[in-house]
C-alpha cells in the first residue's frame, strides 16, 4: 500500500525505432498525494507525454511500476480524465454532446437528465453557459479547450491528466484558463498531473513542480509551491514567485545540458 494516489516507481521505457531502441524514461519517480496537483516540466522530447500515457494505462513501461489508488495500472480505467493541447472535440456533435461523450463509455449512476444537468453545470463553471448547443467550429480556441476540460471531468475522474492543454493559446487566454482551473479544482476536486512548458503556469497551478532531466528522463528536481489553493495572478509577480521561477529555469538549463549540474543549489 502507498499513501499516494499516483505513484510512479522507477519507471524505465524505450521506444522501438528503426535505428534501435530509443530510451525515453530512465528510473522515473513521480508521486502525487490524493488531491494534489503536480506539474511536470522538462526539455522538449524528454518523455513527458509518455508519462501521461503510462498513467492513463494506454501503454506499459518496460520496467518499473505505475500505481493508481493503491493498485498497479494494468490498462485503461474509467477513473482517469484526459485533456490535450489539441482539444479534439468531435465536430459533428454539439458542445453539450461532446462533454457527455465519456458517459457513453463509462457506466454512470446518473440518469440521462442528471448527466445533462451535470454537463451544463460544468460548462457554466468554465464560462461556457449558452454555448451548449453550438458546434465546436463556432467556438474560439480557448472556448474549445474549456469544453475539452469539461469532457475530461464529466465522469468525475479521480485523476485528471492535462498534457499541455493551454500550450496553443495566446497569453491572455491562457491566464484566463489558469484562473478557471483554480475554480474548477475547488468545485470538482481531482488529483492532477499537468504537463507543461510554461514555468509560470506550473507554479501558478500546481502544488509541486517536477523537473525531468533530458532524455532518457529521470526526476531531476522537485519544487514544492508553498501556498496552494486558489490564487490570483498577482502571485506571479511576488519575489517568492520570481525566486521559484529562477530556480526552475536553472534546473531546465541543467536538464538541457546547457548548465553544469553543480550550478544547482
Amino acid at each position: 500500500m502507498t499513501e499516494y494516489l499516483i505513484d510512479i516507481k522507477d519507471v524505465t521505457h524505450a521506444y522501438q525505432t528503426q535505428s534501435g531502441p530509443l530510451p525515453v524514461l530512465d528510473g522515473l519517480n513521480v508521486s502525487v498525494p490524493e488531491g494534489g496537483f503536480a506539474a511536470v516540466v522538462g526539455p522538449s522530447g524528454c518523455g513527458k507525454s509518455t508519462l501521461t500515457r503510462l498513467i492513463a494505462g494506454l501503454m506499459k513501461p518496460d520496467a518499473g511500476e505505475v500505481w493508481l489508488h493503491g493498485e498497479p495500472v494494468k490498462g485503461p480505467r474509467a477513473t482517469v480524465g484526459m485533456a490535450f493541447q489539441n482539444p479534439v472535440l468531435l465536430e459533428w456533435r454539439s458542445i453539450l454532446k461532446n462533454v457527455l461523450l465519456p458517459l457513453e463509455i463509462v457506466h454512470s449512476k446518473l440518469s440521462r437528465r442528471e448527466q445533462e444537468e451535470r454537463a451544463r453545470r460544468l460548462l457554466a463553471l468554465v464560462g461556457l453557459e449558452g454555448f451548449e448547443d453550438k458546434r465546436p467550429s463556432e467556438l474560439s480556441g480557448g472556448m474549445r479547450q474549456r469544453a475539452s476540460l469539461c469532457r475530461a471531468l464529466i465522469h468525475q475522474p479521480e485523476v485528471l491528466i492535462l498534457d499541455e492543454p493551454f500550450g496553443a493559446l495566446d497569453a491572455f487566454t491562457r491566464e484566463d484558463l489558469w484562473q478557471i482551473m483554480h475554480r474548477v479544482k475547488e468545485e470538482e476536486p481531482f488529483t492532477g498531473v499537468l504537463i507543461t512548458h510554461d514555468l509560470r503556469e506550473s507554479i501558478f497551478l500546481a502544488d509541486e513542480v517536477i523537473v525531468l532531466s533530458g532524455r532518457p528522463a529521470h526526476t531531476q528536481y522537485r519544487l514544492t509551491v508553498p501556498d496552494t489553493g486558489p490564487r490570483d495572478l498577482d502571485h506571479l509577480y511576488t519575489p517568492e514567485a520570481a525566486e521559484m521561477l529562477n530556480v526552475l529555469r536553472h534546473q531546465i538549463e541543467i536538464a538541457q545540458g546547457r548548465a553544469p549540474a553543480e550550478a544547482a543549489e
Binding site: 500515457r53 474509467a78 489539441n86 479534439v88 461523450l101 463509455i105
Partner: peptide
C-alpha cells in the same frame, strides 16, 4: 488523441 480520449476510458 481522438483515439486516446476514448481508449483511456476503456
Amino acid at each position: 488523441e481522438y483515439r486516446d480520449i476514448l481508449r483511456s476510458l476503456g
